[in-house]
């Protein structure tokens, strides 16, 4: 069943149908939010808030754009708010206690060595480039969908992707990451 049809049913009063949308998008949304937020608890809270906000504002949803992109846009805004809040808290903690904040989850969670290097290279990139690259190549969103999620024009999405790839390539070359055949990882 298509998202638009499910939404039509929910709006008609079949609230339980929202579970279909949740089931379909919860996993990719949590993966997407992990790239913005630090702790797993924050990620799950934010994902839940995003789904609830999407449900409450379902009357404002337009069929012109996919539900997934709309949901991601809501989630991203919520995540950025939470991220700002957390950053403030960290700054206050540093000022008060002079204690270093914990390393980012990417550093802890990535197990393989190359994956770890790639993750740290990704951290060197500006956040909007990483998000655009991740949404395009990992979650396979269209340019239009990415534009909606990041709240930028499609032309800028293309620029972000192009520049993001260039920067990533430069970073990888700088760190001399080579594949087993002796070729650079990204050609």
């Amino acid at each position: 069943m298509e998202d638009a049809e499910i939404i039509r049913q929910i709006l008609a009063g079949r609230h339980e149908q929202y579970a279909v949308l949740v089931e379909g998008y919860q996993e990719p949304l949590i993966h997407f939010l992990r790239r913005i937020l630090g702790s797993e608890e924050d990620v799950l809270d934010c994902a839940q808030e995003a789904f609830l906000a999407a449900y409450r504002n379902l009357t404002h949803y337009s069929k012109e754009y996919p539900f997934r992109a709309w949901l991601y846009a809501i989630a991203r805004n919520k995540a950025l708010d939470l991220h700002r809040k957390r950053r403030k808290e960290i700054i206050i903690n540093i000022d008060e206690d002079m204690v270093d904040h914990q390393p980012r989850p990417e550093d802890i969670l990535v197990e393989k060595e190359q994956a770890s290097i790639l993750a740290s290279v990704l951290l060197e990139l500006p956040e909007h480039y990483t998000q655009a690259l991740y949404l395009r190549y990992h979650q396979e969103l269209s340019y239009k969908e990415i534009a909606l999620v990041l709240e930028i024009p499609v032309s800028r999405v293309k620029t972000y992707l192009h520049r993001g790839k260039d920067k990533l390539r430069q970073c990888l070359e700088r760190r001399e990451i080579h594949s087993g055949e002796g070729k650079p990882a990204m050609e």
């Binding site: 994956a115 790639l118 990704l122 690259l133 990992h138 990204m186 050609e187």
Partner: peptide, 8 residues
């Protein structure tokens, strides 16, 4: 190739 950069 680019999708390999990201691991979830």
């Amino acid at each position: 190739q680019w999708s390999k950069v990201f691991t979830d």
